[in-house]
Amino acid sequence: MVYALCLVLIAIGLYGVVVKKNVVKIVISLAIIEYGINVLLVLIGYRSGGCAPILQQGMTAATLVANSVDPLPQALVLTAIMINLGMLILMVAICIRLYERYGTFDITEMRRLKG
């Protein structure tokens, strides 16, 4: 059920990307899709009642294996978050340029995109 809620978040972002006509809204929708995917990936490695994968005082490696949440998705999502930031920077730069050129964020009025 929690997985399905993540999927609902992704679906809302997908709806925004397809339906909205404002460029900034599309960028925001893409950010929401990224959030949904990140949470879904971390949730796959979640163990109920599990501790963070940090070796604390008085713990051995065996108890860590038995109690900790999965560290692999977390490491990959950490990379994904930073890459999403890079994507957002690039998209916002394109938005600013488009606004300077067309004077609007409305994609239906950008009709001069010819080669």
Binding site: P53, I54, Q56, A61, L64, V65, P71
Partner: peptide
Amino acid sequence: YLAHGTEQTGARNVI
């Protein structure tokens, strides 16, 4: 990674 991370890399945080 969880079992051998600390002894192989010396980091207490497995991430």
